[in-house]
Amino acid sequence: MSNKKLSTVSLGTFIGMTIALAASIRNIPDVAAAGWPMFLYMAISTFLFAYLFV
């Protein structure tokens, strides 16, 4: 048996990775189609996610 130390991901890192996944390059066409209000929706959803899961 090896005594490898398991690395863990902190909550802040997990939230950052999840937000980066949601705001990835795949969503650029959706943002372009919806226009500037999409940035507001993305910001609101980001803050709600961070508030609810922190």
Rank of each mutant, 00 (worst) to 15 (best):
G12K: 11
I25C: 03
S45A: 14
F49D: 03
V9P: 00
T8P: 01
A23T: 09
L11T: 13
V54F: 10
L21Y: 14
A22R: 12
G12N: 13
G12S: 10
Y41L: 15
G12D: 12
A50W: 05
F14K: 06
F14Q: 09
L40C: 06
F49W: 02
A33S: 12
M42W: 05
L21N: 14
F47S: 06
T13W: 06
M38S: 14
T8D: 08
M17R: 12
M1H: 08
K5Y: 03
L40I: 12
Y41W: 15
P37R: 00
G12R: 10
I28V: 15
T18W: 07
A50R: 01
S7N: 09
D30A: 14
L21K: 13
I28M: 02
A43L: 11
A33Q: 12
L48V: 11
N27V: 15
I25K: 02
T18N: 07
A32N: 10
G16N: 09
F39N: 05
L48Y: 00
G35D: 05
W36Q: 13
L11I: 11
G35V: 03
M17T: 12
M1W: 04
M17A: 13
A20I: 10
I25Y: 02
S2M: 02
T18K: 14
A22G: 15
I19H: 01
F53N: 12
M1L: 07
S7Y: 10
S45K: 11
M17Y: 07
S7R: 09
F53S: 08
V54Q: 12
N27M: 15
S10L: 01
L6R: 06
G35L: 09
A50S: 04
P29V: 06
T46H: 03
A33E: 05
G16C: 03
Y51C: 02
L52C: 07
S45H: 08
A34M: 13
F39A: 06
P37N: 00
I44G: 05
T8K: 10
P37F: 01
V9K: 05
A34G: 11
V9N: 00
I28K: 04
I44Q: 05
I28Q: 01
F47I: 11
F53M: 08
S7L: 09
Y41V: 15
F53C: 04
A33P: 01
T8N: 06
S10H: 00
M42V: 09
L48K: 02
M38A: 15
M38N: 10
A50H: 01
I25L: 04
M42A: 13
N27I: 15
V54Y: 08
I28T: 10
I25D: 06
L21Q: 13
